[in-house]
Simulated assay, not measured.
Amino acid sequence: MSEKEIVIRSIKDLLTPKMLKYSIVPFVLSLVVLYIVFFIIASMGVEQLGTLSVESSQTTLQSGVPHTESFNATIVGSSIIKFLMHYAITSWLVTFFIYAIGTFLAIYFSIFLAVIIIGFLTPFVLAELQRRSYSDIAMIGHSNLLYSLFLLLKSTLIMVLLFILLIPFYFIPFLNIIALNLPMYYFFHKMLIFDISSSICTKEEAKEIAYFKASSLRTKTALLYLISLIPFAIFFVAIFFVIYLGHTYFLATRELRER
C-alpha cells in the first residue's frame, strides 16, 4: 500500500463514529488538566509577584566623617507589573517574554499531556482498526503496565536531561530551533512508537520493524510532530496519529508474518 493510500485510509477511519468518539477524549481530558494547571500556576505567579523588597545604601563624607544612608522599600501587589509596564522598553520586554515563554510552555505541555492520554487509548483504537481492516493479524503485544510506566518515566527523564544539555545551543540562531524541539520530539517519537508496536507486535517483530523501517518511521513521526506544534492541534488529531502509525505497523507486521 502506498503512503498516499495509507493517509487516505487513515482519514476515512478517523471520520468513523467510533473513532470520532475516541478523538473527543484527549480534547476533554486535556482541557480539564490545563484548566487546573493554569490556575495553579497563576496563583503561584501572583504570590511570587505579590511582594518585592528593595534595599539600597549610600555612603557620603560630611566634614570628613562618613555617613551611610539606607533605603528600604516594599513593592506590593500589582505595583511591580505597573512599574515595569510604565516604561516602553520594559513594557515591551515583559509582554514579549510572557507571550513567548507562555506559548512555548503551553505547546510543549500540551504535546506531553496528549501523548500520555492517547497512550491509554491506543489499544482500543488499534483494536477497532484491526476489526475493520486487519482481522488476519493477531495483536500479540509484548508489554505490561509496569514496564509502560517505567518507559514513560525513563523517556521523561531523558527528555529533561536533553533540555539541560542543549542549553548552550538555545542562544545560537537556527540551531536553537532544533535544540528546543529535539528533546520533545524524542519523547513524542519514543512513546508513540512504543504504544503502537507494543500493542500489535511481539518484541522481536517490533525490533525488526524498528531496524528495517527506522528512516520511514522517523520521517513519519517528524511530520506528525510538526503538525503537533500548531497550538493545541494535537488535541484534535492525536487519534489520527495513532491510526496512521497503526496502519504502518499492521502492514509491516503482516509483511513479516507472511515470510
Rank of each mutant, 00 (worst) to 15 (best):
E205D: 07
L256N: 06
S53G: 04
F96G: 00
S135A: 11
K207C: 01
V94E: 04
P168G: 08
E5H: 13
L152D: 01
I111N: 10
F120S: 14
G119W: 04
L29D: 04
V37A: 12
T248G: 01
N144G: 14
L105V: 15
A88N: 10
F212L: 15
P183M: 05
S79K: 14
V32A: 12
T59N: 09
F97Y: 15
P26H: 03
K190V: 00
L162G: 00
F240D: 00
A210V: 10
V65F: 11
T221M: 14
Y170F: 11
I200K: 09
D136S: 13
K220P: 00
R257D: 10
L20M: 14
L224R: 00
L224F: 13
L182T: 12
E208S: 12
L49D: 06
E204K: 12
I81M: 07
I164S: 10
K12R: 15
C201G: 01
I36H: 02
E205Q: 09
V7L: 13
D195C: 03
K21P: 01
A114R: 00
E128H: 11
A233H: 05
F124A: 15
T95H: 00
A138F: 03
F188Q: 07
S57M: 08
I227R: 13
D136W: 05
T68F: 06
L217H: 06
I177T: 09
L180P: 02
P66D: 07
P26C: 07
P231V: 08
I209E: 01
I116F: 14
E258H: 14
F250Q: 04
S10C: 13
A100Q: 10
L224N: 11
L146H: 14
L149H: 02
V46R: 09
R131S: 15
F124T: 09
T253K: 00
F241S: 02
H142K: 06
A214V: 06
S23I: 02
L256T: 01
E47N: 13
S215E: 07
H247M: 05
R218Q: 14
S198T: 15
I117M: 05
V115F: 06
P173W: 03
T156R: 07
V242T: 13
Y87R: 07
I167D: 02
I230H: 14
I243W: 01
Y35I: 09
E47D: 09
F250N: 03
T103F: 12
S57W: 04
V37Q: 05
L29H: 05
S135F: 05
S215H: 03
S198F: 02
M184D: 07
L166R: 08
K207W: 05
P168T: 07
E255L: 11
I167E: 12
S2R: 04
L229G: 06
T253E: 02
K203F: 02
L224E: 11
M159G: 01
F71M: 10
L229Y: 10
L145G: 14
F212P: 00
T51R: 14
V28Q: 06
L151D: 09
R254V: 09
F240V: 03
A127L: 13
I209W: 05
